[in-house]
Design a protein around this nucleic acid. Structure first.
Lengths: 149, 149
DNA sequence: TCTTGACTTCAAGTTGACTTTAAGGTGTAT
DNA sequence: ATACACCTTAAAGTCAACTTGAAGTCAAGA
């Protein structure tokens, strides 16, 4: 069986060793064992826990809430339902985040068109003063929103 | 013509007045004028600037970089090209963020299936010990990644 | 005119997630 | 046995983006 030090595991995950020590200190890594001399010993299975922590972090979840999830997982099968509920909630949150970023993307695409048009004409006053029906149909709603209806 | 105080504009944008004062202090709102008595007077056109700032913030851009963009905009038509470049770069960044969130979403969907299966069987050991070909095809790659190939 | 509520500035405090520093211990290779 | 790289903890420092507090000013209504 393969074991890792904090430095090796950090490298594998692409994070700083101090980050893993900080997570451990915050109670996110109760599964990590220690050697006789007090050195952290990461097992192969710990990698999967760290990947799950990383996944939850990417959803924007705070460390304190990830800790709650890990603590539930440590209690075993009696916490399956709340863990499922937490995952489902986070899944919905990510869907909402994607929707918001797609909205932001539409605004940026409008702005890109805006500056491309400005560049072609040498001035922003051309795209700025266009009437609604002069601009590409897909940007009309975006501009209305930017200007507050 | 319609004018707003900091409190009114903050309400319209759904942020705290202190946030707008902070942005002003950081140089993000050079376009905001003042009354005789020194009170900020927001014009209708300032709303659009604030919406653009809000859009860039949603892309994860830092205030100092948003400030650079605003400063370029204040210089007028000679900065059209760098502004276009900045918008295009940010657009690519948002696309990458969406792609990453979609990857995260797939992992969460796997975890949701995992805990649903655990719930049905009363134990996580059922989904955990499944062989690759026992799990739904769309989750195989996700599990391989979680476990580090 | 006076009250009231919202405005002003400046400075200091908060939050979350790390990172750094200092002082010292571990473990492996020669 | 002695380097040497890497490990340990505790405490302090950093950063971005606000938020709060104190002390005072402005403007509209009674």
């Amino acid at each position: 069986m393969m074991y890792y030090t904090v430095g090796e595991m950090a490298k594998r995950l692409g994070v700083a060793p101090s980050t893993l020590r900080y997570y451990d200190q915050e109670g996110l890594l109760p599964f990590v064992e220690r050697s006789e001399g007090g050195i952290r010993v990461f097992k192969e299975s710990d990698y999967e826990w760290l990947q799950v922590i990383s996944c939850l972090k990417k959803t924007g979840m705070q460390l304190r809430d990830i800790k709650t999830f890990i603590e539930m997982a440590m209690q075993g099968d009696q916490t399956i339902e709340p863990r499922l509920a937490l995952i489902t909630k986070q899944k919905e949150s990510v869907k909402a985040q994607i929707a918001e970023l797609e909205e932001t993307l539409r605004t940026l695409e409008f702005k890109e068109w805006y500056y491309n048009t400005a560049k072609e004409n040498g001035t922003t006053s051309v795209p700025r003063n266009m009437t609604l029906d002069e601009l590409p149909e897909e940007f009309r709603e975006v501009r209305l929103n930017l200007r507050g209806e």
